[in-house]
């Protein structure tokens, strides 16, 4: 069986917000180390990988590995019934077709209980190769959100170029072009810092609508990392205290 007690429903809500527009159904793979989810969008352009560590829960017990097939729209509805600071317990028996969610109010005696149907999901888990990336950019997640949102007003794609100068995001639209250069900052310790580690110059083009989607994870984590090598998928990584959410995005490449 699974029993996982989270300090706050808000963490799960934010996580769902960050993936629900990319994927509709996903298996939450539970084992003694924690909960993992890997899912691709319908067009096979983007992949999201989530990990929640067992140690990050107030209480965690999973006797044997079990997949929980979840419709994310349904889970979003059930989570809306929780207050952000409710203590939240997820429970499922072995071979169960129901996920039980219990919300305990922090400052009152309210206890709410919900049961949600689980489903069988055929998921083809992809093997993601360990990659040595040529460039790693670390920046405030809010800045990343802003730049992709701004450029998505202009065009469909963004070219991301990393050089010693900094990281440049450029988009060409029918009516307007735009580019944003973010220079490396001196003070690495500053939470507003932009740091660039680079073996070689990289230049890649991606669909902006996916990046706008990924950037919703800014609510989970103040920093984001972009990992890039020429002609391979971009990795957008948000590490928060209890785990991580990582997105992979296939590039657009010339014929």
């Amino acid at each position: 069986m699974l029993e996982a007690k989270l300090a706050e429903a808000g963490t799960l809500k934010k996580l769902l917000d960050a993936i629900k527009e990319l994927v509709t159904d996903a298996n939450f793979e539970c084992n003694e180390e924690g909960i993992n989810l890997q899912a691709m969008d319908n067009s096979h352009v983007a992949l999201v990988a989530v990990h929640l560590e067992a140690a990050g829960f107030k209480r965690y017990r999973c006797d044997r590995p079990m997949p929980l097939g979840v419709n994310l729209t349904s889970l979003t509805k059930v989570l809306k019934c929780a207050k952000d600071d409710d203590i939240t317990t997820l429970k499922a028996a072995d071979e169960a077709d129901v996920l039980n969610l219990v919300y305990e109010a922090k400052n009152s005696d309210r206890i709410a209980e919900y049961d949600m149907k689980l489903m069988d999901i055929d998921s083809d888990t992809l093997g993601i190769p360990d990659t040595e990336y040529d460039a790693r950019v670390t920046m405030p997640s809010a800045e990343f959100t802003r730049v992709v949102r701004d450029l998505s007003q202009l065009g469909e794609s963004v070219r991301i170029e990393v050089s010693k100068e900094g990281v440049r995001f450029a988009s060409e639209g029918e009516a307007a072009n735009g580019s944003v250069l973010m220079k490396q900052t001196d003070d690495d310790e500053d939470t507003q810092a932009i740091t660039i580690e680079m073996n070689q110059h990289v230049s890649l083009t991606f669909s902006l609508k996916y990046l706008v989607n990924f950037s919703k994870s800014a609510s989970l984590c103040p920093r984001v990392q972009l990992m890039m090598s020429n002609d391979v998928p971009l990795l957008v990584a948000y590490d928060f205290g209890q785990g991580y959410i990582r997105y992979y995005l296939a590039p657009k490449i010339g014929d």
């Binding site: 352009v45 992809l126 093997g127 794609s157 083009t205 391979v232 296939a250 657009k252």
Partner: peptide, 14 residues
């Protein structure tokens, strides 16, 4: 022109 690649051409089925 640029073509959108699929992730399946980069990642193997595990």
């Amino acid at each position: 022109s640029l073509k959108q690649k699929s992730l399946k051409s980069f990642f193997s089925k595990g």
